[in-house]
Design a protein around this nucleic acid. Structure first.
Lengths: 396, 396
DNA sequence: CCTTCTTTCTCCACACACAGGACAAAGTCT
DNA sequence: AGACTTTGTCCTGTGTGTGGAGAAAGAAGG
């Protein structure tokens, strides 16, 4: 079970590994140009990496007018596990060293069932993926949880929506079970890393990634690095006030963003509209289902239901209010919107954009794209794999 | 006039220079411990710095039980110029290499008179300081302007309160005139750097520095470095909405923070209260002066005028609303409040604190000090000196 | 006054990292 | 077959940095 993955011996090797991860296979010559090292020095480091087995040379590339080059690539047997624990479901993915998703499982589950039950589920999903032949073992695992994390220790702290997890040694426990290095982070941060690695945020240094799920959170990337704040709670925008005397929120205050717009708030509003007979479509859905969800609203909007559309527009306006403030403050180069309710899609986006462009300073919005995430439900798991690969591909 | 200041040849020398700047004089042995270099290597670098004249060895330190050490310190003739251009006044300071203020001048002037007039004033103030024997020439100058700056080029961009400065090559022009390296930044960022170097924010990695002057801005420090955003407008929080259908703002929107609370808004409110006869104190002040200012309100509050106190409390509440949102989002380790109206002092602070502690998440506010800046009007100039010293003390 | 112990600073030999050129290998193109 | 290209290896020179052996300068104690 335990698998001793080699680690790079120095920063050069670490850089090479990350380069191979992000750009795929390469010849020695190309690598030399990219890292700005002499061919001789580079050859030495590559040879050492070959010895440790972290990279392999498989076959020759077609000639480009001279001697054919060897393909240097990361060991094809390397496997990372990406785990994204949401409020109501768990995503687990297996990736290769290039962070391509080889297999992906999703399982509905409430985080509030506590760390023990959730862990059991995660491990069984990991085992299933392994049993299907996708991996013999894992060289690292990243895991995201829906709440603030003390990052260096990998421990959730005072998570509002997941009581019972407070102080649970997630990193320690998972590392023990899987026999490999583990890193823990907030799910929103991982989504940001996912979009940065393989999604819309490639090549953007400073950006925000707003995730709308049961609650609302925001990943902050500064200079290519996730910013986590002093106590790990940065990006917790769900309880920013949008209406001085607005709706009562579970947190005890009034007018919080989450009270006015989030997956949960949207479902509540939809149910109310259905009961009050304002929307025939939603009322019909409520007949068949026990409860309405954000997805119900998506479906209704897609079917052209005016009440659903209005709910989304109104929500987008609220969200836009907050994002407008953040854009003025943070002046990002990109705003990504993602999470479970991306089904709300362009209606939501249009509403947010209108609000932001109207309310933020021209200098900050001048060249500011506001877009939907392009990785969908896999974003978190990919980000998790990215997180642990950054760790594994750094000097021991 | 032109003064060729030597520059460090490598990062070791740069680190040594900054260490000497921040910690004052030191022996070679102490330096060796601090930089984690062998004594031999260190001796070489120090000798080279001595040759270039950037540092000097003056005298022997008292023995600590063995051979007495040489005092290594930055050249006592080094001089930095710190310039802080506010909306309505100019501050100019001369510092030594340790960034201690040797002389300081202040002159009221409206930025809107344009770059040419302001420059003339700045140069004459610098000349006056030099004439008084504080400096023979300058080894670098930092300058802050009240608006967004394209930092790498040192050029203001689309500054709302200082039209006429847009695109003016501040860095280029000042460097030409003074014959030394120049760096330009937003005044708020400089205040943050000042408080970080010599004020309340020493040893805090991530913090916010809110400056209340004619407008309102916020310096953002991430991992000890000022964050400027994609287009240099980060921290521009004056136009975040605090009241959906609030007061009309000069920017064209409604309910902006600056419309409800800032030096200018405060003065306006005070005048109105005076005219409506709600405050005898303020009315009396309006008799003698042409117009009321934020300082008038400070004085009234100090004298116990209830209307002034209420204005400040109300303003603090507005400011607190915005800061509460920023604290949730950014999760800083400290919030500093400064600027011209620090005279409002603890009344304002109390009001802000109440609002923030009530409205932000406990995890973010748990151990969050909210304090007044301790450098007063010199903060900007010190920050400016710090900015340019960081530049001069880095490899060419 | 002399000895011993400390601290500071200097000098020197050695290890290591890295660059850059020469050269061999393996191609393509004419 | 010969000229030219690209890739990869080998070797040597150079500059960076470490660590140890002292020398210098002083304190404390007998």
């Amino acid at each position: 079970m335990r698998r001793m993955t080699a680690r790079p011996e120095n920063t050069h090797q670490a850089r090479l590994l990350r380069l191979l991860r992000d750009n795929g296979s390469n010849s020695r010559a190309q690598l030399g140009d990219l890292v700005d090292l002499s061919r001789s020095k580079l050859a030495v480091e590559v040879d050492r990496l070959l010895e440790t087995g972290l990279v392999v040379a498989d076959g020759l590339a077609p000639s480009r007018g001279g001697r054919r080059s060897h393909n240097i690539r990361l060991a094809p047997t390397l496997r990372f596990l990406g785990v994204d624990i949401g409020a109501t479901s768990i995503d687990v993915a297996v990736t290769n060293a290039e962070l391509e998703v080889l297999g992906h499982l999703n399982h509905p589950m409430d985080v509030r069932e506590g760390p023990v039950a959730v862990f059991e589920q995660v491990l069984s999903m990991a085992a299933k993926l392994r049993a299907s032949g996708l991996a013999e073992g894992f060289d690292g695992a990243g895991i995201g949880v829906p709440g603030p994390v003390r990052f260096p220790e990998g421990v959730p702290v005072a998570p509002p929506i997941m009581p019972g997890w407070d102080g649970f040694p997630v990193r320690e426990a998972l590392s023990q079970e899987l026999g490999c290095p583990v890193m823990v982070d907030n799910d929103v941060n991982l989504m940001a890393m996912g979009e940065q690695h393989a999604g819309v945020a490639r090549s953007v240094g400073d950006f925000l990634c707003v995730k709308i799920g049961t609650g609302i959170g925001c990943g902050i990337v500064v200079g290519g690095e996730v910013y986590r704040g002093t106590t790990g709670s940065a990006g917790d925008i769900g309880h920013i006030q949008v209406e001085p005397e607005g709706r009562a929120c579970a947190c005890g205050n009034r007018g919080c963003l989450e009270a006015h717009f989030s997956g949960a708030a949207l479902a509540r509003d939809a149910e109310q509209a259905a009961r009050e007979g304002r929307s025939a479509y939603l009322a019909a859905r409520l007949e068949t289902a026990e409860r309405l969800t954000a997805e119900s609203v998506s479906a209704a909007a897609a079917a052209g239901d005016p009440v659903a559309l209005e709910l989304i527009r109104e929500g987008g306006k609220r969200l836009g209010q907050v994002i407008a403030g953040l854009v003025s403050f943070f002046n990002p180069g990109l705003v990504v919107i993602g999470g479970g309710v991306t089904g709300l899609g362009h209606t939501l986006l249009a509403s947010v954009r209108t609000q932001v462009y109207r309310q933020s300073l021209p200098l900050a919005t001048g060249n500011l794209p506001i877009v939907l995430g392009e990785l969908g439900p896999a974003a978190g798991a990919i980000g998790a794999a990215r997180l642990i690969s950054d760790h594994v591909f750094s000097p021991a």
